[in-house]
Nucleic acid binder design. Structure first.
Lengths: 380, 380
DNA sequence: CGAATTTAGCAACAGCGTTGCGTAATAGGG
DNA sequence: CCCTATTACGCAACGCTGTTGCTAAATTCG
C-alpha cells in the first residue's frame, strides 16, 4: 500500500508521533518527559514540540516550578484539534460515534439497519448519520475521516468486504472506495474486533502491551494487539476465536467442525447457565494466554456485557488459577472501558492512528515483482 | 533495552538491512531490483550497495545484458562474510551448528548432556563444542556471536532462564551474561520454538508472512512469526500451545487443566495410534489458523519428524477441509526445511538478525518512569 | 561511425537530529 | 542587593541521511 520510503522525512513523522502518543496517555508533560521517553536530545524535542504546537496539536499549559532553576513549560495535547467519526456496522444496527484526538467519545448514536441490508442502504444510513454529526458540531477542517468496523470476512488492505457473515448482498464489495466517494471523506475499513482492540490500545498509549479483545455478540470473536500494532493475519481473517475447538467430538458447529468454543458456549448460554457459558469462554481465554502470552484481556460485546460480572469473575478466576502462576507472569482482565462504543470508537481511532499514530516502516512484504531480474542474461 | 533513537543513522542501518534481506532471498540482484523493492532512488541504492560492498557483505557477480543500453551490474550476498554459532539446548542433548550469512548450515553436531545438568556443565559443553568449531574453521573476525535456543520459561529480554521445565538447577540463571564471559562472544538467548521460526523466516526473507512453527518433541510448542518479527508475548512465554484445552473434561494434564492438546495427543501416540495423534495436532493447528490467520505452518521436532508424512498429511487435510475455504484464503503446510537443525540454526540466525536484519524502531514500551512529571507544581 | 538507450556516479541540496555555546529565569546565600 | 548555582531553552554550525540535476560510460542498432 502506502509505501513508506525510508527517507529522512520519515523521522519527523515518527518522532512527532511518539510525542503525540505520550500526550495521549499522560495528559500533561514537559520537554524532559519526552527526552526520557524517546531518547532524543532536548534540542530535537524542542523542534518537534514547536512543529506540533504550530499545527495546533499541542499547546502550553502552564509551567512547572520544582525549586531551583528556570521553570519548565508544561504542554498538553489539544483534544479538540482533530476529530474522526467511527461506525460500527452490525447485522441489524449502525452505531456512529464522534471521537477526538485524545480518544474521548463526544457523541454516540445507534440506528436500526434494514434486515439483510444492501450496500446502498448502508451508505445512505452512513451519510445521513454523519451529516447529523457534522451539522450539530463545528468541525470545519478538523474531521480526519471515517472509520468503519464491520463483521468479516473482509480485506482490510484493499477496503473490500468479501462476504459479511449472514448478509447476502455483501460479496466483494469495495466498501472503502464507494464510501469515500459517497461521503467525500477518507474511509478506513476493518474487522469489528480489530477496531475494538485498537480503541483500547489507543487510549492506553505506549504502555499497552500484547492484548486481546474478546467480543461476545451473537458470535464470539477476538481482536489482537501484538507488538505495538493490530494483528490482522495474512488475509485480514484473524480473530475467529469462536471457531476454535475446545471439545473434540462436541456438538457440530456451523463452521463444519465439532465442539467449537462458540457452539459450546452458546448451548450453555441458551440453557440459561451463564456460569457455565462464562467458564467455557474462560477456558478459551486461558488457551490464548498459553499460546500468545498476553498482558491484557479486555471483555466486550453486548451478550457479554449483559452479564458482565459473571464473565469477568469467571475469566479472572481462570486466569489466576489455570495459568501456571509466577510473580513475573501477570495478566490483567478488564471490561471494555468504552462499553458498547468500543467498536465504533476504535474504528474512528484507526483513522486518527493513520495520521497521528506511530507509523510503521515500509512493510517487508513483496512488491509486485517487476520481473526485471528474471530475464536472466547474467554473465560472469 | 537497546534504545533505538530515531536519528538519521537509523536510516542507514534500515536501508542496508532491506538490501541484505533481498540478497538473502534472491541470491542475485541488481540496482533496479532494489529500487523496485525499497522505493529508494537509484542514487541512494548506489550508496547503500557501495557501503555494503566495502564491508565485504556484498560483491559484484557479473553483469546483465538485456539488449540495448549499458549493462547493469549484478550483485550477490557474500555468504561466507559472516558466521554465527547456534546452540539447541534440550533436556539431554546439546546441538551446535555453524551458520553463514545466507542461512546455510555448514556444520552440525550433537553431544549428550548429563541428566539434570547444571549451568556449569552446560557452559563447559558449550565451550568445548564451540572451540571445536572455531578450531576447524577459519572464522577470524567473522564470527558474529552465539545464539542459544532453550526450553522455557525464560526472559528473552534480560537473557535470564527462569525455570527450565524439568531441570532442577535452572532457576533465575542469567545465562546470557555468564555465557558471554565464559565464551568471550556475544550471546543471544531465546525459547527454542521462537528460534526455530526465526530460522524459517530468515531463510525466506521478506516474502515470509505470518507463520507458526509447531514443534513436537517430548512436549508440544509453537513458535510464532507475526508482522515481520518473532512474537514472544508479554513475558517471553508465548508458545505453550500444547497446553491449550481441546477436550473439556478430558484427562488431567501436568499443567493442572484437563484435556490439553499435549496430553490428548500423547495418549494417542503412546497407544501407537499415530494417525489419531496427528489428527489431534491438526485440530490444534486449525485452531491457530482460525485465531491468527497464518500463511505458513511449519512442522518440526524429533517426535513429529519420526512420523513426518503422517503428520504432514493430517495437518494438510485438516487445513484444507476444516477452514472455511475460499480462493483468497491460502495457507501452506510444510515440514521444517532444516530438519533437526532448525532450533540451533534459528538461534544462530537470531544473532545474525540482530546485526544484519531489518531493525525495529524504538519499542513503544514504557521507560522507567523518571518520576519527573509527578512532582506536579503545574501552575497556569 | 553516430544516435538512441540504459546504467552509474559526481556534486549540490534539503531535511533530519546533534553538538557547542550563549541566554533567560529562578532560588539561595552573603 | 548582588552574586552564584542551577535549570530550561534556543540559536547556529555541523554531520549524516536520501534527493535532485546533470554528466559520463557502455552498449545496441541503423
Amino acid at each position: 500500500m502506502t509505501r513508506t520510503t525510508a527517507d529522512v522525512t520519515f523521522l519527523r513523522g515518527y518522532n512527532q508521533a511518539l510525542v503525540m502518543a505520550l500526550g495521549r496517555t499522560v495528559r500533561t508533560f514537559e520537554r524532559s518527559t519526552v527526552v526520557d521517553a524517546t531518547g532524543l536530545t532536548p534540542q530535537a524535542v524542542s523542534k518537534v514540540i514547536a512543529r506540533l504546537t504550530a499545527d495546533g496539536l499541542l499547546r502550553p499549559a502552564g509551567v512547572r516550578r520544582p525549586g531551583i532553576g528556570k521553570p519548565a513549560v508544561v504542554y498538553e495535547l489539544v483534544p479538540e484539534s482533530r476529530y474522526a467519526i467511527g461506525a460500527h456496522v452490525a447485522r441489524r444496527t449502525l452505531r456512529l460515534v464522534l471521537v477526538d484526538l485524545a480518544g474521548t467519545v463526544h457523541y454516540s448514536a445507534v440506528s436500526p439497519l434494514p434486515g439483510d441490508f444492501t450496500p446502498e442502504q448502508l451508505l445512505d444510513a452512513l451519510k445521513s448519520g454523519i451529516d447529523a454529526i457534522t451539522g450539530s458540531n463545528d468541525l470545519d477542517g478538523r474531521l480526519t475521516g471515517v472509520g468503519i468496523g464491520m463483521i468479516g470476512p473482509l480485506d482490510h488492505a484493499n477496503g473490500l468486504v468479501r462476504d459479511a457473515h449472514g448478509l447476502r448482498h455483501w460479496h466483494d464489495v469495495p466498501l472503502r472506495e464507494i464510501a469515500e466517494t459517497h461521503l467525500g471523506l477518507p474511509v478506513h475499513l476493518d474487522k469489528d474486533v480489530t477496531a475494538g482492540i485498537t480503541a483500547e490500545a489507543w487510549r492506553h498509549g505506549g504502555t499497552f502491551g500484547d492484548a486481546v479483545l474478546i467480543m461476545v455478540e451473537s458470535g464470539i470473536g477476538g481482536g489482537f494487539w501484538l507488538g505495538g500494532t493490530a494483528h490482522r493475519g495474512a488475509h485480514t481473517n484473524a480473530g475467529e476465536f469462536g471457531h476454535t475447538v475446545v471439545e473434540l467430538d462436541g456438538p457440530p458447529c456451523v463452521c463444519g467442525r465439532h465442539g467449537c468454543l462458540e457452539i459450546v458456549h452458546n448451548h450453555a448460554a441458551e440453557a440459561g447457565d451463564i456460569g457455565r457459558a462464562a467458564r467455557v469462554l474462560a477456558v478459551g481465554v486461558v488457551n490464548l494466554l498459553q499460546t500468545l502470552d498476553l498482558s491484557h484481556v479486555v471483555l466486550a460485546g453486548a451478550d457479554l456485557l449483559r452479564h458482565a460480572q459473571h464473565y469477568l469473575a469467571a475469566v479472572e478466576e481462570a486466569v489466576h488459577t489455570d495459568v501456571p502462576r509466577a510473580d513475573w507472569l501477570s495478566t490483567d482482565v478488564t471490561l471494555s472501558s468504552l462499553g458498547a462504543d468500543v467498536i465504533a470508537a476504535g474504528a474512528a481511532m484507526q483513522v486518527l492512528d493513520k495520521h497521528y499514530g506511530v507509523p510503521d516502516l515500509a512493510p517487508p512484504q513483496r512488491q509486485r515483482s517487476a520481473g526485471r531480474d528474471r530475464h536472466s542474461g547474467v554473465k560472469i
